[in-house]
Amino acid sequence: MRPLETFIEQRKERFVRNSLMSDEFLDFVNKNMKPIEKQMSYYQCAIMEVETKFKVLNEQYSLEYDRNPIEDIKSRVKSMESLIKKIRKKDIPLTLSSIEENIHDIAGVRVICSFPDDIYMLADCLLSQDDITLLEKKDYIKNPKPGGYRSLHLIVSVPIFLQDGKRNMTVEVQLRTIAMDFWASLEHKLRYKKDIPADKAKYLEDEMLACAQISAGLDMRMQNVRDVIAENAKPDEQSLLLKDLS
């Protein structure tokens, strides 16, 4: 290993030892491991509640309108490593109450839809339920990020029912089309490639932005195809499809 690489590795090791393995952090883990595990289980329960709501909506659309607006549902509870990084990035106290108050994406549910219209329809259906409270909404479909990222983000509060009572938990819900999810998956992989030369990195950045614009156009064209099919369906089919589009 070259001297510079050796130096960098040593510095990295020292950072891990002094930061992530600090006495403060180790004390926090020792004192709070059981409460942390319990808190993570609450987030998992909240995910199950939200997933069930979307599965019920999908089943209802299947029975009433003979189609499924949801292609897939993915979920995750943030890993301990990611949670630690977020705590340090936000520079918040190492307490469970502070984590719950300041970090809203520990529980995440991603809903993959067929068409852009389905995203807003499902979001409205979810938010109209009386036990769901909207805390924050970010529409990266109508207002994409500079790099091209598109998705609808909702931070919601949902109750879970435990042995000793009800508890409200925060869940981040992301709604995307198949094209949006495919793009985001590739962008996520590229984000952590640190060994790409500067000229190639600029090319990839421009190419990903172009791909985002193409996929946005594809989403709209596919939705237009669906609309034309609905408008030209037989009378009995048309009433079903138009009801679906309303």
Rank of each mutant, 00 (worst) to 15 (best):
M169I: 11
M169V: 06
M169N: 02
T170R: 11
T170N: 06
V171L: 08
V171N: 08
V171W: 06
V171F: 04
V171A: 08
V171R: 10
E172N: 03
V173C: 09
Q174G: 11
Q174K: 09
Q174F: 08
L175H: 06
L175M: 15
R176K: 15
R176N: 02
I178C: 07
I178V: 15
I178Y: 06
A179E: 13
A179T: 10
A179D: 10
A179Y: 13
M180Q: 15
M180N: 13
D181N: 15
D181R: 10
D181G: 05
F182L: 14
F182T: 14
F182A: 15
W183D: 09
W183H: 11
W183E: 05
W183Q: 07
W183F: 07
W183R: 08
S185T: 15
E187Q: 12
E187F: 02
E187L: 02
E187A: 15
H188G: 01
H188Q: 13
H188S: 09
K189N: 12
K189R: 12
L190I: 12
L190S: 05
R191Y: 09
R191C: 03
R191T: 08
R191G: 07
Y192W: 03
K193T: 04
K194E: 07
K194H: 12
K194R: 12
D195L: 10
D195G: 00
P197W: 10
P197Q: 09
P197R: 09
A198T: 02
A198F: 01
D199E: 15
D199K: 13
D199V: 13
K200Q: 04
A201P: 00
A201S: 14
K202R: 14
Y203N: 01
Y203R: 06
L204C: 09
D206Q: 13
D206S: 14
D206E: 15
E207V: 08
E207F: 12
M208C: 08
L209D: 01
A210I: 08
A210N: 11
A210P: 00
A210D: 07
